[in-house]
């Protein structure tokens, strides 16, 4: 598997959330809060993703939270490197898109419905 491939939205959000140690449920809440409720992760999906990331050593178990006694996770240097690369990649994509829109004749139509720009 390509280690430099695009990350799924879920994995990206988990890595960002685990810049601070958090337990699974807190990751779910954080992702929802950061995206204003747009990205809601199911517990099963999160469990699978966390296990995959542990296996890849992008995150590690940071022990149990002394208050809640829930298992916490945190990003590793390897995970951090992947995340930094992904942020650069996303930045590049964003820039390409913005430039493309700027140079396009149809770009000044923010109010137009999807698809209408192509009919002209």
């Amino acid at each position: 598997m390509n280690e430099r491939g695009a990350l799924t939205e879920g994995v990206y959000m988990i890595l960002v959330s685990l810049l601070t140690p958090r337990h699974g449920y807190a990751v779910m809440q954080n992702v929802e809060a950061l995206t204003n409720g747009r990205v809601v992760m199911g517990a099963g999906t999160l469990y699978g993703a966390i296990n995959n990331l542990l296996e890849k050593k992008w995150i590690v178990s940071a022990g149990n939270n002394p208050e809640s006694r829930k298992k916490e996770y945190v990003i590793t240097p390897k995970g951090m490197e992947t995340l930094q690369y992904e942020i650069l990649r996303l930045g590049e994509l964003l820039q390409i898109g913005m430039e493309g829109m700027k140079n396009s004749a149809n770009s000044e139509m923010p109010g137009k419905k999807q698809g209408e720009a192509y009919e002209n």
Partner: peptide, 11 residues
């Protein structure tokens, strides 16, 4: 809150 277990395509 909502109770969904699988929210990604792979699962």
């Amino acid at each position: 809150g909502p109770f969904e277990l699988h929210t990604d395509r792979a699962s």
